[in-house]
């Protein structure tokens, strides 16, 4: 349907019914200061009583309001083309800071987790950025990113820009003055998700299961602790987000169940790339990319032996966690609470 097709409907049907059919259209009216109108009248009837000068401030006349209103309905009713499923992304090596070629070709599929390790300033973020903009040998690293094994066409690259990839980093905060519930509902509305109440409910439950300390639906998002915010962001990205690729810049330093968080993302068929220094996360990934001097120096598959070391590292981690909790609780750290390393 084109915008013109809606003109007949909008001209004949009372605005109250129109708004029930297309709830978002209320936003268009509010944007031109036409909220709270008589629901029994049609839009053209309503416009008869509106001051032309007021419309002119928006650069509109009565006919244009009707047409723009219809164009708005059309734009947001368009049956969304189901996004072409992403079955893989491939990183083709470019060169490092000194111009040496990266001998690398790495394909990642949904459900896979790849960690990125390397010293600070080595170029981990640059790699995430190359993936985000689907680099085609035209960024400083000259890397190329393939989608489903082929070069994404220019259109897709630009139109999809920002939609393919969701990002999560330690610096991110909530800035909206909303409760958890309002926040999730607002996000669901913007995604035009049917049955959003159930999704909101699920998202909330999952976020709470990841967070060390529980929060309620009427907590303000700005009042959540670091761990709670991160949990809500992860649950929201996994369940309400549309991006098939998730780039994570450091997940540690937060009171959050990291293992479950990664499981949740992977379980929702996302491709997860995670820049991290945390051994528990790095070793839990299927592969890890090692970066030095701006270039990928190797890709290591997590070995069976490394996987076996995981439970030892977890033991060390839980010792540290215990000490942290003792400190938090105002306790005294006793020598005995730290096991000898041979005992682990």
């Amino acid at each position: 349907m084109s915008a013109l097709d809606y003109v007949a409907e909008v001209s004949a049907v009372p605005i109250g019914d129109i708004l029930r059919r297309y709830p978002l259209a209320a936003d268009y009216l509010a944007n031109i200061r036409l909220s709270g109108v008589d629901e029994t009248k049609t839009l053209p009837e309503i416009l008869e009583d509106v001051d032309e000068d007021m419309l002119e401030e928006f650069g509109l006349d009565r006919e244009e309001v009707i047409f723009h209103f219809c164009a708005f309905i059309e734009a947001f009713s368009r049956v969304k083309r189901p996004d072409e499923a992403i079955s893989s992304i491939t990183i083709l090596g470019g060169r490092n800071k000194t111009g040496r070629p990266e001998m690398v070709e790495l394909t990642i599929t949904p459900g896979e987790v790849v960690s990125i390790v390397g010293p600070t300033g080595s170029g981990k973020s640059r790699l995430l950025e190359d993936i985000e903009c689907l680099a085609q040998r035209d960024t400083p690293t000259a890397r190329q990113i393939l989608i489903n094994g082929s070069v994404p066409d220019a259109d897709k690259r630009f139109v999809a820009g920002g939609k393919l990839v969701a990002q999560l980093s330690q610096n991110m905060n909530f800035v909206m003055d909303l409760t958890v519930q309002e926040f999730l509902e607002m996000h669901a509305k913007s995604r035009m998700i049917a049955g959003s109440a159930a999704v909101v409910e699920k998202c909330f439950a999952v976020a709470n299961s990841l967070a060390g300390e529980k929060f309620t639906l009427d907590t303000k998002v700005t009042q959540l602790s670091g761990g709670q915010s991160r949990s809500l962001m992860i649950a929201d990205t996994a369940l309400l987000g549309s991006s098939p690729i998730i780039l994570i810049d450091e997940l540690e330093n937060a009171g959050i169940d990291r293992r479950e968080a990664v499981k949740l993302l992977v379980g929702n068929e996302k491709i997860v790339l995670m820049s991290t220094h945390d051994p528990l996360l790095a070793l839990r990934a299927d592969k890890r990319i090692v970066i030095r001097n701006g270039g990928i120096t190797k890709v290591i598959e997590t070995t069976a032996e490394e996987e076996e070391t995981l439970h030892k590292i977890e033991a060390i981690d839980s010792v540290l966690l215990d000490i942290r909790n003792q400190l938090r609780g105002g306790g005294i750290v006793a020598k005995e609470s730290i096991p000898e390393f041979q005992e682990i």
């Binding site: 990002q167 991110m172 905060n173 800035v175 996000h187 990205t237």
Partner: peptide, 11 residues
């Protein structure tokens, strides 16, 4: 956008 949540960017 680097300092606000992904969801807020989308909204």
């Amino acid at each position: 956008g680097d300092i606000v949540s992904q969801a807020e960017r989308e909204v």
